[in-house]
Simulated scan of single mutants.
Amino acid sequence: MNAVHPPGLYRHLDEMTPWDDRLQVLEVISVTDEAPQVKTFTFRSDAQAWFRYKPGQFITLELPKAGGPLLRTYTLSSSPSRPFSISVTVKAQAESIGSRWMFDYLKPGDRVKADGPSGEFSHHNHPAEKYLFISAGSGVTPMMSMLRWMHDCAPETDVAFINCARSPEDIIFRKELQLIGSRMPALSLAFLVEQRSNRETWSGLLGRINATRLQLLAPDFLEREIFCCGPAPFMRTVRAILEAAGFDMAHYHQESFCAPAVEEVPAPFSTTERTAPAAEAFLLRFSLSGVEASCPPGETVLQAARAAGVRIPSACEFGLCGTCKVKKSSGEVAMSHNGGILDEEIAEGFILACCSRPLTAIEIEA
Rank of each mutant, 00 (worst) to 15 (best):
C164W: 00
Q254H: 15
S79H: 08
S329M: 07
C153E: 15
Q215H: 09
E15G: 11
L132C: 14
L302W: 07
R274T: 14
E120I: 12
Q195L: 01
E169N: 06
K328C: 12
G207T: 04
L26N: 10
Y53V: 07
C321E: 01
R111G: 04
A165Y: 07
K175G: 02
F121T: 05
C258Y: 14
L26F: 14
A259R: 15
I172M: 05
E15R: 10
A259Q: 13
A154K: 13
T271L: 12
T17I: 02
R285D: 11
S79L: 00
E299R: 15
G331Y: 06
E332T: 13
L71I: 02
F173T: 03
S122P: 06
G340L: 02
R306D: 11
L132T: 08
P64Y: 05
I241H: 03
E317H: 07
V333Y: 07
I171H: 00
L76D: 02
C354P: 11
G68F: 08
H5F: 15
F286L: 11
G137C: 04
T271Y: 13
F350P: 08
D170K: 10
S30C: 00
L352V: 09
S289W: 09
K325S: 05
H126T: 03
N125Y: 15
V193P: 00
V301S: 02
P83S: 07
A259T: 11
E225S: 06
E317P: 08
F133L: 10
A281S: 15
D158L: 01
V38G: 07
F318D: 01
F221N: 04
A304P: 07
S135P: 09
G67F: 04
F257N: 05
S294G: 12
P233K: 05
A154Y: 11
S314Q: 03
S45W: 03
A186D: 10
R111D: 02
S287V: 15
I86L: 14
H253I: 03
M335N: 05
G322N: 03
P108F: 06
G349P: 12
E27K: 13
S330L: 00
A211E: 12
G181P: 08
M184I: 08
A3E: 11
V28R: 01
G68D: 06
L205K: 08
T300S: 15
C228E: 01
A66M: 09
H12M: 11
T272H: 13
A240Y: 09
M249L: 14
E345T: 09
Y105F: 13
Y74V: 04
G290E: 13
T300C: 09
L283W: 09
R285H: 15
R52P: 04
S167P: 00
V159G: 01
L284W: 12
R306N: 14
S79G: 04
T32S: 03
T32Y: 00
P297R: 14
R208Q: 12
S138A: 12
E200Y: 04
L26S: 08
E243H: 07
L76I: 10
W149S: 08
E176K: 01
V333P: 03
K107W: 07
